[in-house]
């Protein structure tokens, strides 16, 4: 008697759940991402010491041509026309969130004059803690001076 040959066993990798896995990954990344409140492109100064900055912070960014943008950490950063407006911004911030730190994101080539004015404004507004945003300094920097 000739037996009917059994069906050949399928040699396909099951990919039906692949989409589920991929979407799970997408959702995970979407939930964990923290959006950058300030997207200003600056060349940061380099330091050896770097401390973690808390998540809820205000930003003040200064580009190499002296443009200043500020954000209290809730919205995207907006440009301020004048250095003197930083005082108003900082005073409002301190009134709204007394414990929020301010991150100073200034370009490495900014003349110190601008930074000095900002520090002065922050002192007047009684800001207590600021962070000077920096990149990691490496051995290459030391060699290059």
């Amino acid at each position: 008697m000739r037996l009917k040959r059994r069906h050949e066993q399928g040699s396909v990798i099951p990919t039906a759940s692949m989409a589920d896995i991929a979407f799970l990954l997408i959702v995970f990344f979407m939930v964990t991402i923290t959006f950058e409140k300030d997207k200003t492109q600056v060349v940061l100064p380099r330091t050896e010491l770097r401390f973690e900055i808390p998540k809820e912070v205000a930003y003040i960014s200064v580009t190499s041509n002296g443009q200043i943008r500020v954000t209290d950490g809730d919205e995207m950063s907006a440009p301020v026309p004048n250095v003197d407006d930083v005082v108003t911004f900082a005073a409002n911030l301190v009134a709204k969130y007394p414990d929020r730190a301010i991150v100073l994101k200034a370009d490495a080539d900014v003349p110190y004059r601008s930074v000095d004015k900002i520090l002065d404004s922050l002192k007047q507004a009684k800001v207590e803690l600021i962070y000077l945003l920096s990149e990691q300094r490496t051995a290459d920097d030391e060699a290059g001076g």
């Binding site: 950058e36 997207k39 330091t47 401390f51 009684k126 800001v127 945003l133």
Partner: peptide, 17 residues
């Protein structure tokens, strides 16, 4: 497209004015 935010820097306590 994600740009990693620099989230480290030097802290500096401003003296009371």
């Amino acid at each position: 497209t994600t740009t990693f935010a620099a989230t480290r820097g030097l802290d500096f306590a401003l003296p009371k004015d």
